[in-house]
């Protein structure tokens, strides 16, 4: 996670930029809104994605994630707001220039099932007007470990393999920005891990990746920063920042038997702001600084004659952050 944090810092300060040396964000979105008639797909969304960043875009079903990707990919026109994609303003006149520099892997692979893998890729290499198409196709196939199955009909492939072909197709044009819309949905854990490894490989090559996903552990593992969308943008930041924003630091204490008078033990200790019992012999302490509080709590428990089994910092996952925000929205909607 430290490496990830350092990487995110370098992206934000601009020192991590892609091979082409161009500066400025890969994506810059300002108050973007899309409505279909009266229905709001997403509203007033603003964010920036640095070049070479892996940016997670999370949200429940119907939150507007896919429509955002389609809008940034010039398939859907925004209702209002502005954006730049790969350095080009998101306007109808720049659609082709933008599409030259990006690739979108939709949720459904969308392969021509009657054609072979090679025939699918040949078609798309020509659509991207790739120079040396056969060489490029070979590279893409090797990247997804499908070089030996190039002549297989796509209709005979498993869902995981189709997803890999779709990823190979997305790599053909050597995109600056790769939009991956739920790339691991419906995949078994092994296939999902393979896709994760491919994404990590692309990250190493400096490709900007815009990843929409429901899998929060996936976002936590792969993304430098994440945004949570629920029609409007609820929050954006590094996973650790979001945890810190939403949750106070807590220590979890377990003892062999219940402490007779826990209030007397925990109250007033340095760095401890509050406590509550979390089980028969378990306590959760809200702390301002765990490095100060943990030794003080340990000393106090030993002094009180308690047998300490464990003291540890309570870890909030990205899932906790997500659920906290989305639950808030659900409560607000009900009221």
């Amino acid at each position: 996670m430290d490496q990830q944090t350092a990487r995110a810092d370098r992206i934000q300060d601009g020192s991590l930029s892609p091979a082409d040396g161009r500066r400025g964000p890969a994506l810059s979105v300002d108050c973007l809104t899309k409505r279909f008639g009266d229905r709001v797909a997403f509203e007033d969304v603003s964010f920036e994605v640095g070049r070479g960043e892996v940016f997670g875009f999370l949200g429940p079903n119907g939150a507007g994630k896919t429509t955002t990707v389609r809008t940034l990919g010039t398939l859907v026109a925004p209702t209002s707001g502005s954006a730049t994609v790969a350095g080009f303003p998101l306007t109808p006149g720049h659609g082709m220039e933008i599409r030259r520099r990006i690739a979108i892997m939709p949720e459904s692979p969308g392969l021509y099932l009657r054609l072979s893998i090679l025939e699918n890729l040949e078609c798309f290499a020509d659509l991207y007007e790739v120079s040396d198409p056969q060489g490029r196709i070979g590279l893409a196939l090797r990247a997804v470990n499908l070089a030996d199955r190039a002549h297989d009909a796509c209709g005979t492939l498993s869902k995981g393999l189709r997803q890999r072909v779709a990823l190979a197709r997305a790599l053909l044009g050597d995109p600056e920005i790769l939009f991956l819309d739920e790339p691991t949905v419906g995949l078994d854990p092994v296939a999902a891990r393979e896709v994760h490894e491919l994404i990590l490989g692309l990250r190493e090559r400096g490709v900007t990746i815009f990843l929409t996903t429901h899998r929060l552990e996936e976002a936590e593992r792969l993304c430098d920063r994440v945004a949570i969308l629920n029609t409007t943008l609820r929050t954006i930041g590094r996973p650790d920042e979001l945890r810190a924003q939403l949750f106070s630091t807590a220590l979890t204490v377990r003892t062999l038997v219940a402490v007779p008078d826990p209030g007397r033990v925990f109250t007033g200790l340095p760095g401890v702001d509050g406590w509550h019992q979390d089980g028969p012999a378990a306590y959760s302490l809200t702390v301002s600084d765990s490095a100060v509080a943990a030794p003080a709590v340990t000393r106090a428990l030993v002094a009180a004659g308690a047998d300490v089994l464990s003291i540890g910092e309570k870890q909030h996952s990205l899932e906790d952050v997500y659920l906290e925000l989305i639950d808030d929205d659900a409560v607000a909607a009900r009221s």
Binding site: M96, R99, I104, P109, G110, L111, L127, Y128, R169
Partner: peptide, 14 residues
């Protein structure tokens, strides 16, 4: 019907 239109239209094709 096959879901192949979207990938094709995300390329630079006019």
């Amino acid at each position: 019907q096959q879901g192949t239109l979207e990938p094709a239209l995300t390329t630079p094709i006019r």
